[in-house]
Design a protein around this nucleic acid. Structure first.
Lengths: 209, 209
DNA sequence: CTTTTTGCACTGACTGGTCAGTGCAAAAGT
DNA sequence: ACTTTTGCACTGACCAGTCAGTGCAAAAAG
């Protein structure tokens, strides 16, 4: 019957199967979208029988929702870690933002499919995922907002900035630049992309140095 | 024998039907995605019979492709217009970028559904739309690249900026900030969003004014 | 002027195929 | 022993695309 959903403690075999299903689903859904991806395809790509999908997940939608939650935890964790590391190393808040941009780019280049899928589904007016996605989004944006807030409090950043809007814009800038990089200019290095974004963040676009 | 055709182009009735179908399709696809939207739904929302969809468009995909082309032309035109107007008024290139940000925001708030759909479909690895979407994307990004290039040539902008990457990042910033605004903070005014982005562009985030 | 023809625009019932989800007995782990 | 996975046949809903036919107005014929 329904085992407790906490992964810690479940059998290893089951967990391994779920992992294979996540990986298969994330790439297929990123490529084709949720509706266009069939459960048969997911099962086949994961090398598993169709029945196994339904033994492990209540439905196709549930599989997708758990996938989203799983993925965004990884992202939020790596952003948080980047910010904290900068903190420990005595960097400024702008340094922390810069480190987070890099962490974001690294995440996206490691899990491009998850990012594609996230962007594609986030702003749907569709009621189905909305609640899951709101949570998921908030986790990522909150980390950036936290750093901005501390920067303003400490006088390092202008107190005129609009924290939620600026955080959203920064996340968007990184997200879209990264996807564009992967999709349309894959020959560029991560450093190229990082320094372009860094320059934008630090206002070194206008004025000749 | 010659059918009475209106001097410029096809019959008015046909054009009106196609317009209704565009409008119905754009909102439905933005809400649900391409695959999850049925032709029956589109026809019903447009107030026509299903057969009419196929009388006017070869297939569901073709309807969607023409919709994309139609929409991005509006966007590129309004960006171009904003840049040119700034030019005429003797503004700087940074002023032009700022005007384009505003034009982008205005476009998005006028056609939110188109923007949603564009973002959701653009980075799919799926082969189906790729060619159409590349063209569509290039039309929008090229306008921004043009202004950046002129700014660098004229010495107003740093010659160290990576034009394609910066253009993509700027477009992304505006796109995502605007969608976030619509979806999660709709009470904010266009001016709020514009000034937050403007501040980011002009590097007034770091430093207390 | 009246009747007939022509062709465009549209209609909606229908078809052939697809796919999420089920059921179950046998096999394979652990 | 028990949990998990397999393989496969099956169902019922749903959906893209088709097609024979309708309505209408302008043009041609009478």
């Amino acid at each position: 019957m329904e085992r407790s959903s906490t992964p810690s403690g479940g059998s290893t075999r089951r967990e391994a199967t779920r992992q294979k299903l996540y990986e298969a689903a994330v790439t297929l859904i990123a490529e084709q979208g949720f509706s266009a991806t069939t459960v048969d395809e997911i099962a086949e790509r994961a090398g598993v029988a169709k029945g196994t999908v339904y033994y492990n997940f209540a439905s196709k939608s549930v599989l997708f929702e758990e996938l989203l939650r799983h993925g965004v935890e990884l992202l939020a964790a790596s952003l948080r870690e980047a910010a904290e590391k900068t903190e420990r190393d005595g960097g400024t808040k702008v340094d922390a933002l810069d480190a987070m941009i890099r962490a974001g780019l690294e995440f996206i280049s490691r899990y491009p499919a998850f990012t594609q899928l996230y962007v594609a589904e986030l702003w749907r007016t569709n009621r189905t995922w909305q609640s899951t996605l709101m949570v998921v989004r908030q986790q990522a944006v909150a980390v950036v907002e936290g750093v901005l807030r501390e920067g303003v409090a400490g006088g390092e950043l202008s107190d005129e900035i609009d924290i939620p809007l600026t955080a959203a814009a920064l996340v968007g800038m990184v997200l879209v630049a990264a996807l564009d990089w992967q999709a349309f200019q894959p020959e560029r290095s991560l450093d190229d992309v990082h320094s372009a974004l860094s320059r934008l963040l630090q206002g070194r676009v206008g004025g000749n140095r």
